[in-house]
Amino acid sequence: MEPLLAGEQALLGAVLLYPRQLRRLDWLEPRDFHRPAHRVLFSVLRDAGHPGFAADADDGEVPLDWLIDTLILAGEQTRGLDASYLHTLVAACPRPGHAPLYGRIVLEGSIRRTVTEHAERLLAIAEEDLAAGDVEGTAHQADVLAGVLADLAGRWGTPHRPQKPATTPASAPTTEPSEDVLVDEQFLLSLLVHQDGAVAEVFDWLRPSDFADPGHGQLYRCLGALHHRGEPIDAVTTQWEVQRRGLLTDGTLAEKQLTPILNAHLVAGSAEWLSEQLLHASLTRTAAESARQVTALAADNRLAPGQLVGQALHALGPLEEVRARWRTANGQPSPGAVRAAPAEPGVPAEPGVPAGRVNAALSRSTPQPPAPRTAPSAARACATPATRRPSSVPLRSAQ
């Protein structure tokens, strides 16, 4: 017998033997049971207005008419419940006093099923939106999954915060980008190379990881580096930056990828619009990958529910980062977001850095005017313990 089924039967058997144990199971809901018949039976059992429930005693015999009425009410809503099955449930309970622990088994199974269900739904919607060129459904379902994880964290009693896994969960392999996607990315890179100021229009929110082809992403990183250094962007400077980074020698880029982009002439189009479409596709691909990772986490029985929720939230982190840039591209920056210059061209700065810390770092890197020279006696007078500069207080680490 499966452990989850054994837990559900043991819990229902414990309640049938001592109905007042339901007071210790108020955190459990009928939807937490995997079998539909068990959901119905638990819903009937926990109905406080059921005849005979209030008259039952913890150490007394359960009224026979209460059991009969329970069986009749449950049988009206589902099939497969009869007197013999009630005997099976009672026999499946080794210790009625362990009902809360059996309930935790039921809740844990419910958490895994719920996470899997919403992650699979996110994956299906993301794949549909990727084919349709839409993102609204993916964004909505991602919010739903995040809300479900928050609710499950509260029910299990664990902190609602991301938890980095020791190893990245193995998910299903992703499909290779289609030829149309590669052609669109190639055309966009041609515009960015040959149109003056095109990179500046998208540099703040488009990242190398948004490209489906890794080689195209590294080529965009070269363009971002040139823009970041304030150097002109054309076919010659781009080729030099590619060679300087060794992208052709290490196999990251192939000549057949680079040559059409550099040799394109009279290319016309909106680099900003094409970049937005590329970002839309990146959002749906990231959502699909996050959903695959969450599904793999839910299938790992070694993870406790608290670990599952925390690591699932961590898996949604890359998706939220892409969504933040998507809002920026559409003129809807996240409230309270702090804009800082990226440390690496084409790579976002670390999110969540307080403005005070950014300003402190900038002040440390800014040359300071030399201090005025003072007489030795005056310097010694200023170095008394009462006037010495107090030691700096370390910044509180992020939780």
Rank of each mutant, 00 (worst) to 15 (best):
R112W: 10
A124K: 04
Q141I: 12
G157D: 05
R113N: 10
G137M: 09
V90T: 14
A92V: 06
A124F: 07
V144Q: 12
G147H: 11
P100L: 03
G147F: 08
V144I: 15
Q141Y: 11
L145V: 06
T114Y: 00
A99M: 02
E128F: 12
G97E: 15
S110I: 00
G109N: 09
V106A: 02
G103F: 02
V106L: 01
A146G: 12
A153H: 06
G137Q: 04
E117M: 11
A142I: 03
D151N: 15
T138L: 02
W156F: 13
L122R: 01
A119G: 01
V135R: 04
R112I: 10
L123Q: 04
D143L: 14
A99S: 06
R155L: 05
D134I: 10
R155P: 07
G97M: 15
R121I: 06
A153E: 10
G137F: 05
A99F: 00
E117R: 14
V115C: 09
D134K: 11
E127T: 14
W156Q: 14
T88D: 08
T138S: 06
T138Q: 01
A91M: 11
A142D: 02
D129P: 05
G154E: 14
G109Q: 08
R95K: 07
L101H: 03
E108T: 08
E127D: 14
P159F: 03
P159W: 05
G103T: 01
A146S: 13
R113Q: 10
R104N: 03
L101W: 04
A150Q: 15
L123F: 03
D129E: 04
A99E: 02
P100V: 01
W156H: 14
H140C: 07
E117Y: 11
A99C: 03
E128Y: 12
G137A: 10
